[in-house]
C-alpha cells in the first residue's frame, strides 16, 4: 500500500492470517443464507448496499416516483481454518438483476457452491451459467427442503445439463456437517483439478 510504513506493514503481515473466500450462490430463496449461517463460526452477518437505479428512465417516473434506490443484501460468514488461515463465505445476492456485483465477489474466490432447490431448479440455472462462463470451479449442492431428497443426484445432473465432472451433492443447508461436506467436496474438486496427473490407485 503506497505511503504506509514498511516495517509496520511487514510486522502486521506476519500476524495477520491468510484469507481465502468461497462463494455460495444460487437462485432467490434457495437457502444461501441458511448455509452460510450453519457453517460460519460467527453469527452470520448481512451487509446491505444501497444501489441507485441507474437504468431508470428519468423521464418516465410515473408510478415509481419514490423508488429511486434499492438495497441488495449479501451474507457473510467466517471459518478459522487454522491459526494463520481464515476462510470467508460470501452468500451472493440471489436476485438476478444484482449479478453485476458477482463479478467483484468472484474476484479471487477459490470456487463456488451453487445451491439448487429441486422444486425450482430453474432459479439456479443462471448461477451455473455465470461460473461456467468465467471458468470458476463449482459444485452443485441440492438443498433438500425438510431434509428430503425426492430425486437422485444423477437425475438432477441430467435436468441441469451439467458439464462433465461437476459434482452433484445432496445436502441439508440447515445442517452444519452437511454444509461442511459440501465445502470439502468443492476443495476436493479443486485439489483434483490442480493435480490431474496423479496416478490412480
Amino acid at each position: 500500500m503506497a505511503g504506509s510504513d514498511t516495517t509496520a506493514q511487514e510486522s502486521a503481515d506476519r500476524s495477520a492470517p491468510d484469507t481465502v473466500k468461497i462463494l455460495i450462490a444460487g437462485g432467490f430463496g434457495v437457502g444461501k443464507t441458511t448455509m452460510v449461517g450453519s457453517v460460519s463460526e460467527i453469527a452470520p452477518l448481512r451487509t446491505e448496499e444501497p444501489l441507485t437505479l441507474a437504468g431508470l428512465d428519468v423521464d418516465d417516473l410515473d408510478g415509481v416516483e419514490e423508488k429511486r434506490a434499492t438495497t441488495v443484501a449479501m451474507d457473510f460468514g467466517r471459518i478459522s481454518v487454522s491459526d494463520d488461515l481464515v476462510l470467508y463465505l460470501f452468500g451472493t445476492p440471489g436476485q438476478q438483476r444484482f449479478w453485476f456485483m458477482w463479478n467483484d465477489l468472484a474476484l479471487g474466490a477459490l470456487g463456488a457452491v451453487v445451491l439448487v432447490d429441486v422444486r425450482r431448479p430453474r432459479t439456479s440455472f443462471a448461477a451455473i451459467d455465470f461460473f461456467e462462463r468465467r471458468n470458476i470451479p463449482f459444485v452443485i449442492a441440492v438443498n433438500g427442503f425438510y431434509g428430503e431428497h425426492p430425486y437422485p443426484a444423477e437425475d438432477i445432473r441430467e435436468a441441469l445439463t451439467l458439464p462433465e465432472g461437476v459434482p452433484v451433492l445432496l445436502c441439508d443447508a440447515r445442517e452444519r456437517e452437511s454444509s461442511r461436506d459440501v465445502l470439502i467436496a468443492l476443495i476436493d474438486r479443486l485439489i483434483a483439478q490442480a493435480a490431474p496427473a496423479a496416478p490412480a490407485g
Binding site: V20, I79, L85, R176, E177, R180, I191
Partner: peptide, 14 residues
C-alpha cells in the same frame, strides 16, 4: 495445492 490441502484439513476438523 498447499493452501487447498490446508483448507481441506481445517474443514475436516470442523
Amino acid at each position: 495445492l498447499d493452501l487447498l490441502q490446508k483448507v481441506r484439513e481445517g474443514l475436516g476438523r470442523l
